[in-house]
């Protein structure tokens, strides 16, 4: 099975280009020499659009998003180019990156329970994000926080704002993480497996919420998942990664109807499809 893919794939321009990633390589030193966990990845995200990055664990998809945030674990280095609104992010100082984080690029993580500090109220944790970038009084921050909680449809937000993370259910916690990300009105939202830890019904609600919010705000989104079915619901563009390499890229339509890489075909074949029984046949016969 050949895993080589075209090095640069241009995705059709819909809106203005928000994020351009070119030849991104992430390296970690190990006792047996440096290991490339992301190899030469290149992709684009248009504002208002969603790019789905698909891959199994260890495929490098999470490292790609952490590289964009400038939050690679200790020892990791990123080379290539990451441009947000035309400004290069790689090589910036930590101080400058702090202004980008939260404000320009926000992130929602996989496990909403462990991603919230158990010792502080959810209100305080959203407020501090807001105040870190906008300053202002606590009163303002609190107002914004309650509004954000209402936008992610948390009932009784003005009371719930003073509750602790453990007092919320899993789906609610993920809504809080989304509220935290959105209160700063970022240009790009990275959602790293935001629904993986949730029940299927809750998962659908969160996906719907993300889609609605994106329509309202026009935020660009990177949606990272191992689940092709989820990608088909949310993404306009799709990137498939395996072992740090980008094996497939294109519009969702292209990738689903006409996958080029054998790995993508295998992934698609594994999907239960009841809508089009011939799809699978088409996929394998090519």
């Amino acid at each position: 099975m050949s895993l080589t893919a075209p090095r640069t794939i241009s995705i059709p321009v819909a809106g203005s280009t928000l994020l351009e990633v070119d030849h991104l390589t992430v390296t970690f030193p190990t006792s047996s020499g440096p290991v490339e966990v992301v190899k030469d990845a290149s992709f684009r995200v248009e504002s208002g659009d969603t790019l789905g990055i698909v891959g199994e664990s260890g495929s490098g998809k999470s490292m790609t998003s952490l590289a964009i945030m400038g939050l690679l674990p200790r020892g990791g280095t990123a080379t290539g180019s990451i441009r947000l609104n035309g400004h290069e992010l790689l090589g910036r100082s930590d101080r400058e990156m702090r202004r980008v984080r939260g404000d320009k690029v926000a992130m929602v993580f996989q496990d909403p329970l462990s991603s919230l500090n158990p010792y502080y109220t959810v209100g305080l944790q959203i407020e501090e994000a807001y105040r870190a970038h906008n300053g202002g009084s606590r009163r303002d921050a609190r107002r914004v926080t309650i509004e954000a909680l209402e936008r992610v449809r948390i009932a009784d937000a003005s009371r719930r704002v003073d509750h602790y993370p453990h007092q919320f259910s899993g789906g609610m916690r993920q809504r809080i993480m989304i509220a935290m990300a959105l209160c700063l009105e970022p240009d790009l939202l990275i959602a790293d497996e935001p629904t993986t830890a949730l029940d299927v019904t809750v998962q659908a609600q969160i996906l719907e919420l993300l889609a609605d919010l994106q329509r309202e705000t026009g935020t660009g989104m990177i949606f990272i998942t191992h689940d092709l079915a989820v990608v088909s619901q949310v993404a306009q563009d799709v990137l498939v990664m395996k072992d740090g390499e980008q094996v497939e890229a294109g519009t969702a339509e292209q990738v689903f109807s006409n996958p080029r890489a054998a790995y993508t075909r295998a992934l698609l074949a594994a999907l239960p499809r009841i809508d089009d029984p011939f799809d699978e046949l088409k996929g394998t016969s090519r």
Binding site: R101, D111, S114, S115, N117, Y120
Partner: peptide, 22 residues
């Protein structure tokens, strides 16, 4: 090593604040 530390950094908080508060 906890995930909420990553969240705090992703919010764009100052490193000393992350350490002190979280």
């Amino acid at each position: 090593g906890q995930n909420f530390m990553r969240t705090a950094k992703a919010k764009g908080l100052d490193a000393p604040v992350v350490l002190r508060r979280h």
